[in-house]
């Protein structure tokens, strides 16, 4: 583990329905850095994000996840969240019957250091909604119900800015968004970085969302293996040459297992 890593994934393997998805994954993210996890469709990028967050759909079959100095491999998802880990969902769920504002208030109520008086809470979320160019009427609507894809991603960004996690894993937050919504998401990421000195692990296979970010490290995943790592220059390389160059590299990884 890198001495000062905020997130340190070591030799992590995970499966679903007895099918191994992640194979001996190593990955370190230092505080304040922006990391990008790239790879072709089906590489296991989202799985890594979900496993880091403790999704019970997956079984960790080996290795460890250390976050902020604590081994969280066995920790429940809600505790990981309260420890400062955040996962922005590729497809946020709908919760009928629960107004967005009630949901947001509950997320804060579970964090003793973030509890707010109601007036302050309403003021805060209205300001955030305004900043993200989000119609405030959505705050009283049922969570996710009838929201467009863009609105759902805005809600994800709103939560990111409200909860101020130590590390945010953004799972294809850019997928399926038009130019305007993409710009709002980028704006959210910038604000998170500026205000919280936030740490980002961005999962994507599209380089467009990275254009305005200073990326510190790029990791490439193919078939559940981390097959390459490097600095931000890898992004333009991938943009130009695609992932073809990495296909087959996972065979070498498997040979070492």
């Amino acid at each position: 583990m890198t001495r000062d890593a905020l997130l340190s994934v070591r030799d992590l393997s995970a499966s679903v329905d007895e099918k191994t998805i992640l194979h001996h994954v190593d990955l370190d993210v230092a505080p304040g850095e922006v990391h990008v996890l790239m790879g072709p469709n089906g590489a296991g990028k989202s799985t890594l994000g979900h496993v880091a967050m403790g999704d019970p759909t997956y079984t960790v079959t080996g290795g460890s996840i250390v976050f902020d100095g604590n081994d969280i491999t066995e920790l429940s998802t809600d505790k990981r969240s309260r420890a400062g880990l955040f996962l922005s969902f590729q497809a946020p769920v709908e919760i009928p019957g629960v107004p967005l504002s009630s949901f947001l208030r509950s997320t804060l109520d579970e964090r003793p250091d973030m509890k707010m008086k109601n007036k302050q809470f309403r003021k805060t979320i209205k300001e955030l909604a305004c900043e993200l160019n989000m119609d405030q009427a959505y705050l009283d609507r049922e969570l996710g119900v009838g929201f467009s894809g863009g609105e759902k991603k805005k809600v994800e960004m709103l939560q990111l800015l409200l909860l101020k996690p130590k590390l945010a894993i953004l799972d294809e937050t850019d997928s399926g968004l038009d130019v305007d919504a993409l710009s709002v998401v980028s704006q959210g990421m910038d604000a998170y970085r500026e205000r919280c000195d936030g740490t980002l692990l961005i999962i994507t296979h599209n380089t467009r969302i990275l254009e305005h970010l200073d990326v510190d490290r790029v990791h490439v995943m193919v078939r559940g293996h981390i097959v390459a790592e490097g600095d931000a220059s890898m992004i333009s390389d991938i943009d130009e040459n695609g992932f073809e160059q990495f296909i087959g590299a996972d065979d070498a990884s498997e040979a070492h297992e």
């Binding site: 969240s81 949901f103 509950s106």
Partner: peptide, 22 residues
Amino acid sequence: QMFYLASRGLSQEAAENMFVRA
């Protein structure tokens, strides 16, 4: 849905309270 709520820090009990609160 429960995983999503948990990923925002809500335990099962907290999620139930949220439905009541809503």
